[in-house]
């Protein structure tokens, strides 16, 4: 008759397994942080005990263009998300509320942008961008970045709109509000959790993007992901500095992920509640 109750032994075993998995998943991150505090001389030993140094940080932050790369990444990723929100939210509303021919096809088309391997489209884009003088410009990169962020945003927000009963809009209409007032007063607060989590997730995806900026950006605009490779010179590899660059560039993503963790699960599991 004992069916669902877990014994103490089982609980211990489960926890041990979880700890093993956590170590496995987190170890690279820990190692990278350790590396960033090591001097070049200690770089290749596998000791956990060493004398930490801030040299690498000094080098990266004050002797290179690192802050500029950070800024470029922020501009490109941030504006891509802004574009996605401004265009994507109305698009999501239309896909949720209106009935028009090929609606589902269009919705799927938007999602399918995410399916194509980047390497497949990057070459034609490279040629087109050169002709249009978009190569190595902010505009050009923002343009390709929003391809990454928009589909996610539209799909999440559309689910939210579909969850809001249309009668709420009708009620507000009858109360005497115009469509814009209804949209900002009633709808935006209701989609906010989804919008925020989708936007932040889109930002992280854009931030981590590597293939597009590698080929579509040159010297004028350099997102951090590409710039990190510079620390791998042809003859020398400054692993310490590389680690610093990587740690700092990973910070926004980690911070965001931790901050929105709670919202993220709720915000993105819209499919589960709709049933």
């Amino acid at each position: 008759m004992k069916k669902t109750e877990t014994s103490t032994g089982m609980k211990v075993l489960l926890n041990v397994l979880l700890i093993i998995y956590a170590v496995f998943a987190l170890f690279p991150l820990v190692w990278m942080v350790l590396l960033s505090f090591k001097s070049d001389a200690q770089m290749y030993n596998t000791m956990f005990v060493f004398s930490p140094t801030l040299d690498n940080y000094r080098q990266v932050l004050f002797k290179t263009d690192y802050p500029r790369y950070m800024r470029d990444s922020l501009i490109v990723s941030g504006l891509a998300v802004v574009v996605s929100v401004v265009v994507g939210v109305p698009a999501a509303y239309a896909l949720a509320r209106y009935n028009f021919k090929k609606k589902e096809d269009i919705a799927f088309q938007i999602l399918s942008f995410k399916f194509a391997p980047e390497i497949l489209v990057v070459l034609p884009l490279f040629i087109i961008f050169q002709k249009l003088h978009l190569y190595d410009t902010y505009l050009g990169l923002i343009w390709v970045y929003q391809l990454i962020s928009m589909p996610l945003l539209i799909w999440v927000v559309r689910g939210y709109f579909e969850d809001i009963s249309v009668e709420i809009e009708h009620a507000a209409q009858v109360d005497g509000y115009s469509w814009w007032q209804i949209f900002f007063k009633n709808l935006v607060p209701l989609i906010r959790p989804g919008l925020v989590s989708a936007a932040l997730l889109a930002f992280i995806f854009a931030w981590n993007e590597f293939t597009f900026p590698l080929l579509l950006a040159g010297s004028k605009v350099q997102p951090i992901t590409v710039a990190i490779t510079k620390f791998l010179g042809t003859d020398t590899a400054h692993y310490g500095q590389l680690a610093v660059a990587a740690v700092i560039s990973a910070l926004p993503a980690i911070i965001f992920a931790l901050v929105i963790q709670k919202h993220l699960v709720r915000g993105l599991s819209f499919g589960a509640v709709k049933g």
Partner: peptide, 20 residues
């Protein structure tokens, strides 16, 4: 005349309260 300007008040079957 659109809904806002007809000067009616409506009670909906699913109540349609503003959740926030």
């Amino acid at each position: 005349v659109d809904a806002a300007h007809r000067d009616t008040a409506m009670v909906f079957e699913n109540y349609a309260l503003y959740p926030q």
